[in-house]
Amino acid sequence: MAQTIHVGMADLVAVKVPSLLVTLGLGSCIGVVIYDPRNKVAGMAHIMLPDSRDAGAVLKPGKFADTAVPRLLQELSALGALPSNLQAKIAGGAQMFNIPGKDSGLLAVGARNIEATKRWLAHFNVPLVAEDTGGNKGRSIEFNVPLWNLSVKVLGVGVKEL
């Protein structure tokens, strides 16, 4: 029986056992999963913001794209993942509120989150194999270890498998 692990805001979890990694209600945040299907290791982070350099102390590395990706890779490798086997899937980064004729600044953080997460995955040579990002709707996501499918649920739209 797979255990269900809830990955809260700015959390970061890596597992080696059958699990369901779950994040409910992503808005502008990004849910990123990185996994090694050969060694059956996977991890998920709930990234809130693109860049830790804008902030003071980093209490939770899962909070920022530039700290979450390397930390997740570190934890995966501690569990036996090999860098050359790694793949990534991401979801999230919506902009739910659109104010016409305005530069939405803080409300447009979703797009910057998507860009930063992809940039850091590329930086560490982790291929992005699937994504469901952007748009104007929030998402709930579930990643099944070891089926490696990411289901993305959108209110009023339905479930999509990545």
Binding site: M9, L24, G25, L26, G27, S28, C29, M48, A94, M96, F97, L107, V109, K137, G138, R139, S140, L155
Partner: peptide, 9 residues
């Protein structure tokens, strides 16, 4: 949308 997504923002 979902309450969680609004609070996420």
């Amino acid at each position: 949308d979902m309450l969680g997504s609004v609070m996420d923002i």
